[in-house]
């Protein structure tokens, strides 16, 4: 059994096993979470947590499911933070950059304070992608923001009061839709299937008994690594 150390959940002291994640510690303390817990694997952004430790004036952040506790830390999970999202129809966008600027004009109010970048638990250069959005460089926004789990912490800190992760969301879709070129073979394959190709071959297999299927399966050609 690990040694117990004190932490403060929303200001209230509990003793929890050293080395736990914040989520593990909260559950050890006896909480059954409804909000503030999702995938438990660092992907969903439900458990963004802000905390401080004694002797350090700075605010710290982490995902509760991924961050180890520190002695005497005081923390709170932010299960939700208000955000507005622009509505748009990807199919009718003619000028992607203009569409992004019109949807989120507040990006031009960015003060360059970098609070968003400093707080991001995914170490994303949020301020840099907002700069990219201002310049209309959708590729830069898309690549820099790709690991975003939309936890909302950047929006909670932004001095210009924007919602960076929603800007990035729209930019990624605009970039993928308008820049990445779908290879011809995708539509060709769909056409083949619609014309009824492959159906007969597959039905022939369905008609075979297991022993025959085993042989065909064992003899199939396997592409190398």
């Amino acid at each position: 059994m690990a040694e117990l150390i004190p932490i403060y959940l929303m200001g209230k002291k509990y003793s929890v096993p050293e080395g736990s994640t914040i989520l593990g510690a909260i559950e050890h303390a006896g909480y059954q979470l409804i909000r503030g817990c999702g995938c438990r694997g660092g992907f969903c952004g439900a458990c963004a947590t802000v905390y401080r430790v004694p002797g350090d004036h700075q605010i710290k952040v982490g995902l509760a499911c991924q961050t180890q506790i520190e002695e005497n830390m005081t923390l709170t999970i932010l299960p939700s933070y208000p955000a507005n999202k622009a509505l748009y129809d990807l199919e009718t966008v003619k000028d992607p950059v203009k569409a992004l600027w019109q949807a989120y004009p507040e990006i031009f109010k960015c003060l360059g304070c970098s609070a968003c970048t400093k707080i991001c638990p995914q170490d994303i250069a949020v301020m840099d992608y907002i700069a990219g959005a201002k310049r209309g460089n959708l590729e830069q926004v898309a690549e820099l923001s790709f690991d975003c789990i939309m936890c909302g912490l950047c929006a909670s800190r932004c001095l210009a009061q924007m919602v960076p992760y929603n800007v990035a969301m729209m930019a990624r879709r605009l970039y993928a839709k308008n820049t990445l070129v779908k290879p011809d073979y995708v539509l060709k394959r769909i056409e083949e299937v619609e014309q009824g190709n492959y159906k007969d071959e597959i039905d022939e297999l369905i008609g075979k008994d297991i022993e025959e299927l085993r042989k065909i399966y064992a003899g199939r050609d396997i592409e190398g690594i």
Partner: peptide, 29 residues
């Protein structure tokens, strides 16, 4: 060989269409 073959058939024949649907929706493959 325990799968229900007709369902697998639907799965693989729809595969290209689904990939296309996701690409068209702006998924960054």
């Amino acid at each position: 060989y325990t799968n229900v073959p007709d369902i697998v058939k639907a799965l693989v024949l729809d595969g290209p269409k689904i990939a296309n649907w996701l690409i068209d929706m702006g998924v960054m493959f």
